[in-house]
Design a protein around this nucleic acid. Structure first.
Length: 501
DNA sequence: TCTGGGGTCCTAGGACCC
DNA sequence: TCTGGGGTCCTAGGACCC
């Protein structure tokens, strides 16, 4: 999808169409998530500090992200991709690989490159019809080449790399074009006199291994020759869950730092449990005032999804870290994920012991208590979960008395008792300005209210196309749904398509 | 007004085991 | 008795991606 977050905002907000729009963090330490093409003309781009973007494009609209809406629009697009093939590999909300050979989309076309092109163009039309947004399509014989093609195609285009032309197409491109070659790798290559993909191909595998190490050297060498046999893999399971916060002002008070780590641990476990997972390794992350970053981790005896267990582990890890000079970021994560917990294992062991004892005394096996695999009285609610000390402690956020739905973040949906639907354009000094318009309305006008005006309330986003965007709001993101069945994953990969951001 | 948040993969050293 | 070799797990850091 092209400039996805910004494009969704422009589609939602008629007054912003054709105007520079920047979506991202709006605080003093925020960065740009997505800039509309109009904003890019001012030099604004992803990952740039928002403060810098404001200097470059002071008249752009600066909006907080509405992930619930983006996810809902993404689901619509991903459904269209599943109509082409069962093998769809999402890379993010706005990008996915599709293995066309694994599906039926090419049947009934004239086959070959022209058949693939037909499928790609039809997909682009279907995306536009369903969402009103533009997407770009890259078609090629491997994931790497399809991705490069989609980069070249955007915005609102399609590029096909014909079989046999790969090496010639790649040769003059910068090494940075290859996925996996970032600033550090590019610098290593530059010092070795290598600036283009063609020069990598000439260098030879031995030299690349020496420069880049084993795994990276092999893959960069292969990709420079246009070789990439990675299969499209649908629905991979997450391997870690983490949350982190950067604070507007560095934290120095140790009590506050501990409190924040506890809150992050709670949020992390909430997401872990929503995904139906548990984890064995707890990790904390501390970024200091000078941007230096360290992590500390601890592996438990078994996987847990208990907030108290994760919180205590995180605090133990924090005990070994000096934060007196000030921290700008704290994070808590869980890895080593599993679908069961230490408590489950304990319950199973107990049940097994019970059966053994029952067997010895001649009682019917399974007479008391559920065996493994059978739902117990606590099905759906794990034993011990939520019982840990402090789970419900509901700590006060220091110095913040404003509830989440009364924080008027620019871009957020609101409803006014008299004026109807609109969105927050800005707020400050006790006032909030709202522009009253909806996706299908004409550009609306702006009105100003007191921030505590009882007639003003936050509202659900409006889905593009029609209707309200379901339960997915920005306060409570839709929980991740775990795939129940896994696709056979893999096999022949080409030809592959990708739609790009 | 300098640098988000959520991930993945790789490397390297040490502990530990056989 | 001065000293092997392979494998796995854990920890920490770093590059990279969207």
């Amino acid at each position: 999808m092209d400039a996805f977050f910004a494009a969704v905002e422009q589609a939602s907000k008629p007054s912003l169409r054709g105007k520079p729009v920047v979506v991202g963090g709006l605080g003093p330490r925020g960065v740009v998530s997505t800039a509309s093409y109009e904003a890019r003309r001012f030099g604004v781009h992803s990952a740039m500090p928002t403060a810098q973007a404001r200097r470059l494009a002071p008249n752009a609209a600066y909006l907080g992200a509405r992930f619930g809406l983006y996810r809902a629009v993404s689901d619509v697009v991903m459904e269209l991709l599943h109509g082409l093939s069962p093998l769809v590999e999402p890379l993010s909300l706005d990008e996915a690989f599709v293995d066309l050979e694994a599906g039926q989309a090419l049947e009934g076309t004239q086959g070959g490159a022209e058949g693939a092109r037909e499928v790609g163009e039809r997909l682009r039309r279907d995306i536009a019809t369903a969402t009103g947004l533009t997407g770009s399509v890259g078609l090629a014989g491997s994931k790497m080449l399809a991705k490069i093609a989609s980069e070249q195609a955007k915005p609102d285009g399609l590029v096909l790399i014909p079989v046999g032309t790969e090496r010639g197409m790649l040769a003059p491109l910068s090494v940075r074009t290859l996925p996996g070659v970032g600033p550090a790798t590019a610098e290593v290559l530059r010092r070795a006199g290598i600036g283009t993909v063609g020069e990598i191909a000439e260098a030879g595998e031995d030299e690349l291994l020496r420069l880049l190490g084993r795994a990276h050297g092999i893959s960069v060498h292969a990709m420079a020759h246009g070789v990439d046999d990675r299969p499209v893999v649908a629905e991979r399971d997450a391997k870690s869950v983490s949350v982190e916060d950067t604070y507007d002002v560095d934290l120095t008070d140790r009590t506050r730092v501990r409190l924040e780590v506890e809150r992050l641990a709670g949020r992390c476990v909430t997401r872990l449990r929503a995904a139906g997972r548990s984890g064995r390794t707890v990790v904390i992350k501390v970024r200091s005032y000078d941007f230096s970053t360290l992590t500390r981790s601890e592996t438990l005896r078994g996987p847990t999804d208990d907030a108290g267990v994760v919180r205590e582990a995180a605090l133990r890890l924090l005990d070994g870290v000096d934060t007196t000079a000030g921290v700008r970021l704290l994070g808590v994560g869980v890895s080593g994920l599993a679908d069961f917990t230490q408590e489950d294992l304990f319950a199973q062991a107990q049940a097994a012991q019970g059966r053994a004892a029952a067997h010895e005394t001649g009682t019917e096996p399974g007479a008391d208590g559920p065996g493994p695999g059978q739902p117990g009285p606590d099905a759906g609610e794990r034993p011990g979960a939520g019982q840990a000390a402090g789970e419900a402690a509901a700590v006060e956020e220091p110095g913040a008395a404003v509830p989440a739905d009364r924080r008027w973040i620019p871009g957020r949906d609101v409803r006014h008792a008299v004026h109807g639907r609109g969105w927050v354009q800005g707020s400050g000094v006790g006032k909030v300005t709202v522009r009253f318009e909806e996706p299908d309305s004409a550009p609306g006008r702006v009105r100003t209210f007191s921030v505590d005006d009882p007639q003003l309330e936050s509202a659900e986003p409006v889905m593009l196309g029609a209707g309200v965007a379901g339960p997915a709001t920005d306060q409570s993101p839709a929980p991740a749904i775990r795939p129940k069945s896994r696709s056979a994953g893999g096999g022949a990969s080409p030809p592959t398509g990708t739609s790009s951001p």
